[in-house]
Write a protein that binds this DNA or RNA. Structure first.
Lengths: 337, 337
DNA sequence: TTGTATGCGTTATCAG
DNA sequence: CTGATAACGCATACAA
């Protein structure tokens, strides 16, 4: 016995009717008698028939697949977003194909190329750190494939996107320090060229200046993971006037900062307050003390990105691409007071 | 101007040759003149032609997609495995479609159903905690679709799989405690019914008995995440004879255990040693002290699972489904001595 | 209410 | 060396 999946042809042959009748019965079209519908459905059940999406896709020029490109799925934030995208996609019978750029421009280009060759119906992207050329995104649009950005969007390309209040979150965190009397607030900043880094940096800078605190460039250093957060903070603590607050571009860097602080025999938040970004459920729980952080609604961001895709697909976006901004929120824990 | 992707037909029309010639030229068949090949290639380049994988798939009864079902992509271990699978898949021109069961049996069933309807060429699964019925796996095989298990395999189904030395890792960890004079070793165990839980439990039990340490059932409690690890350890520390070592089924539970230990004013590893499982790069760094853990080769496990899939596809597995066991390794950090 | 014919983009078979 | 044609599985316009 050969193991093959049943086709409508098989059903048609067995029932002595035409394939089109089978097709229509399966789709519950009104112009088919209840009797044949029932017969078709029963046989389909019996033979465990499942429509071949490949064939359907070819016919309807649609794959029912959304391509998603993220820097790394290991990051809690990105995997949460993927779940959000899936949530909406599944409601509409779409699947999600996830690719990782691993923060490499070359890989990002390749992944997009292969997604296009699988004829995904749309591509949702968070751009890699190292991407400075954007032709591969233009290519997507040139082919008429809906393109949506999330989190790390690309201002050079006219496309819808979802971000969260990076600027406002950073502003809030920084101002929180100042309101509690901290005057030497350091910033562990993200990589240059990434919009979110700039936004968070700007929020930090503006919060300082608007609260009449002088910006000290020595206190702005790059750090994006535990190790660099640790190293950079170690250096910061050597400064003649060491910081009394640290706002980090993400929770990993903030965790590294706390390690350096503890090692130095200092105490957070008494000597130095620390705020991270992402509100990672694991990291914020494990640091000593627990880490205050700016919460980003990752799941909702994924949902929104998927909705934007469907809006483009349904041609609902009358008035050009919009960037939607989702709210962030400072979650206070042990590392601030 | 309509935005459509160029097809083989477009190339043929433009060059005044037949589609079959174009197809053959594109595939670099020997029976086509260099001149036409060159012309075709150049035009393809110019029109940015990309083969339509949907059509190719229909024709060749192959989608070039591997379906992967994991409990949750947020876990570092699983996302690492996915990267491993992708690594091998991409070499062969295959893509990976990842689904999450979210530890729900129902969702696992659904995801597998939809993967089959997209006509994936194979399915690689790590079974959910709540799965106790296995008919959906049998269905995959009944349809002739290659099925591979990894990490959380299913002994009831005859299929190839990759696991790591869960038993041996647990044995090594437990014995390590005993060799260092610990006699009251507790175990934070995983959920019942999961093979890896049982394996790790058995490794723990056997290490005790073979080293002539009496098993104390009070010291075996369930815990799989930070919170339950914390709560259960708190209770363990209330025992008249509190444990002097804790072997946890994963790093999250171990991290929770360390929180309880620190809170109680005890010190690891002096008062209690702790070993986790997974060697999560973030968790093991952040606990106080840093967490010793059993390393599992996640990336390699993914690679191996993918290789097994291709072996089935290429009909290379002459002698029935094999279960491959990858080595684990105790990585010592601050929480043990 | 049902059947016939056609085409989606590609590849394989058979002619020439 | 190249072309015509059929087929993959399905859906739809058009007939009947």
């Amino acid at each position: 016995m050969k193991k093959t999946q049943a086709t409508i042809k098989d059903l048609a042959r067995e029932l002595n009717i035409s394939v089109s009748t089978v097709s229509r019965a399966l789709h519950d079209r009104p112009d088919i008698s209840e009797k044949t519908k029932k017969a078709v459905r029963e046989l389909a059940e019996k033979l465990d028939y499942q429509p071949n999406q490949i064939a359907q896709g070819l016919r309807q020029k649609r794959s029912y697949v959304i391509g998603v490109v993220v820097p790394e799925i290991v990051h809690h934030f990105f995997s949460t977003i993927i779940s959000g995208i899936e949530d909406i996609a599944y409601e509409r019978g779409f699947h999600v194909m996830v690719c990782q750029s691993k923060e490499s421009f070359e890989r990002e280009k390749e992944e997009i190329e292969t997604l296009m060759s699988t004829r995904v119906d749309g591509i949702i992207v968070s751009v890699s750190k190292s991407t400075t050329d954007f032709d591969h995104f233009r290519k997507i649009q040139k082919r008429g494939i809906p393109l949506i950005f999330f989190d790390r969007i690309c201002h050079e390309i006219k496309a819808p996107g979802v971000v969260c209040q990076d600027y406002e979150g950073a502003y809030e965190a920084t101002e929180h320090f100042i309101k509690h009397g901290r005057k030497r607030v350091a910033h562990l900043r993200g990589p240059e060229g990434l919009v979110i880094s700039t936004q968070r940096l700007n929020g930090y800078l503006d919060a300082l200046t608007r609260n009449k605190v002088k910006v000290n460039k020595q206190l702005i250093v790059p750090a994006g993971d535990i190790d660099s957060g640790y190293e950079q903070t170690k250096k910061l603590l050597e400064l003649p006037e060491r910081p009394d607050g640290i706002f980090a571009v993400n929770d990993n860097a903030a965790a590294g900062a706390l390690m350096a602080i503890n090692e130095k025999g200092l105490e957070a938040p008494k000597d130095i307050s620390v705020v991270g970004f992402n509100n990672d459920p694991v990291i914020t729980k494990l640091t000593k003390p627990t880490l205050s952080s700016i919460h980003q609604p990752g799941f909702e961001m994924g949902q929104e990105a998927a909705r934007m895709f469907f809006d483009v697909l349904d041609e609902k976006n009358q008035d050009g691409p919009k960037i939607k901004v989702l709210p962030t929120q400072l979650i206070e824990r042990g590392s601030t007071l």
